[in-house]
């Protein structure tokens, strides 16, 4: 099991009902973790339209997760 720190923004914040949480997971990649969270929180955004950041840096969806990682799924951005 890995302990993962999660922060949620925009639509994912609304769906999760919280800005941040800590979860224990067997998911070994960001992609697997997102699948798991879709089942828990009912996220409807497709990973194809998002990016993921681990420890505040963009990374590939198949990057292995380590205990204590901080993960943010990045919904389509709309700054400016």
């Amino acid at each position: 099991m890995r302990r993962i720190e999660l922060e949620y923004f925009a639509q994912l914040h609304d769906a999760a009902g919280c800005a941040a949480e800590r979860r224990e997971t067997e998911a070994d990649t960001a992609a697997a973790l997102y699948d798991e969270l879709c089942a828990i929180h009912g996220f409807s955004l497709s990973p194809a339209c998002m990016r993921v950041a681990v420890n505040a840096a963009f990374c590939p969806w198949d990057q292995p997760l380590r205990d204590g990682d901080h993960v943010v799924f990045i919904p389509p951005v709309s700054g400016g």
Binding site: A10, R51, A53, I74, P75, P76, V77, S78, G79, G80
Partner: peptide, 30 residues
């Protein structure tokens, strides 16, 4: 610079409408 900010900087705008609702603005290519 403005094009790249809109395309890739993790900032999100939630519009507040006069009618009272809110909505996340979709969506630039990420």
């Amino acid at each position: 610079i403005i094009d790249e900010i809109k395309r890739r900087v993790p900032i999100w705008k939630q519009e507040h409408y006069e009618a009272g609702e809110t909505g996340w603005v979709a969506c630039h290519d990420v």
